[in-house]
C-alpha cells in the first residue's frame, strides 16, 4: 500500500466521507471559487472521478457520452501535483480541443502520469461554463487505510 500523502499546508483535511460508493465527489463551498471533495479506492479512480466532476461543471451536467481515446502523459512530482496537472489537462482537452473526458486509466510513473483518457471528441459546444484552472490552494490528497480522499479548489 502506498504511504499517505498529505499535501495541504495549514488547511483542513476533508471530513471522513461516509458513502457506500466506490468512487464519488461532491462540490463544497468556497467564497470565490469552486471546490470538490473526491473519494475512491484507487488513486487512478480518484483521478477519473475528478475528471468527471470537472466535466460535469463545464457542461452543466450535460456531457455527451463517448468512447474516443486520448493518450496522456504528464510530468508531476507528487500525488497533489498529479491531481492538479491531470485536471488542467482535462480542462485543456475540453476547452481547446473539445474532448470531454468521462473515464481514464492512468498509471503513476516516477515522472508523473501516463495512460489513456476516454470520452467524447468534437464536443466543444457542450462546454458552457468557464473553469480557469485547478489550483494548489488548500489541496489535499491522502490515503487512509486504502481509501483515497482529496480536496481541490478550482479557479472559475
Amino acid at each position: 500500500m502506498r504511504a499517505a500523502t498529505v499535501v495541504a499546508m495549514g488547511g483542513i483535511v476533508p471530513a471522513v466521507l461516509q458513502t457506500p460508493a466506490v468512487a464519488g465527489h461532491r462540490q463544497i463551498e468556497h467564497t470565490a471559487d469552486l471546490a470538490f471533495e473526491l473519494w475512491a479506492d484507487e488513486f487512478g479512480e480518484l483521478l477519473a472521478e475528478a475528471a468527471r466532476a470537472v466535466v460535469a461543471v463545464l457542461t452543466d451536467g450535460r456531457a455527451p457520452a463517448g468512447t474516443d481515446v486520448r493518450e496522456v502523459e504528464l510530468a508531476a512530482f507528487d500525488d497533489g501535483d498529479r491531481l492538479v496537472r491531470w485536471l488542467n489537462e482535462v480542462l485543456y482537452l475540453a476547452i481547446v480541443e473539445g474532448f470531454l473526458v468521462n473515464d481514464a486509466t492512468l498509471a503513476i510513473t516516477p515522472e508523473g502520469l501516463r495512460g489513456q483518457a476516454r470520452g467524447c471528441s468534437g464536443a466543444r459546444d457542450a462546454v458552457v461554463t468557464e473553469v480557469k484552472s485547478a489550483t494548489y490552494h488548500d489541496l489535499v490528497v491522502r490515503n487512509d487505510g486504502g481509501r483515497w480522499t482529496a480536496r481541490v479548489v478550482m479557479d472559475v
Partner: peptide, 8 residues
C-alpha cells in the same frame, strides 16, 4: 517555505 503551495 510555503504555508500554501499556491504561494510558490
Amino acid at each position: 517555505a510555503l504555508r500554501d503551495r499556491q504561494l510558490c
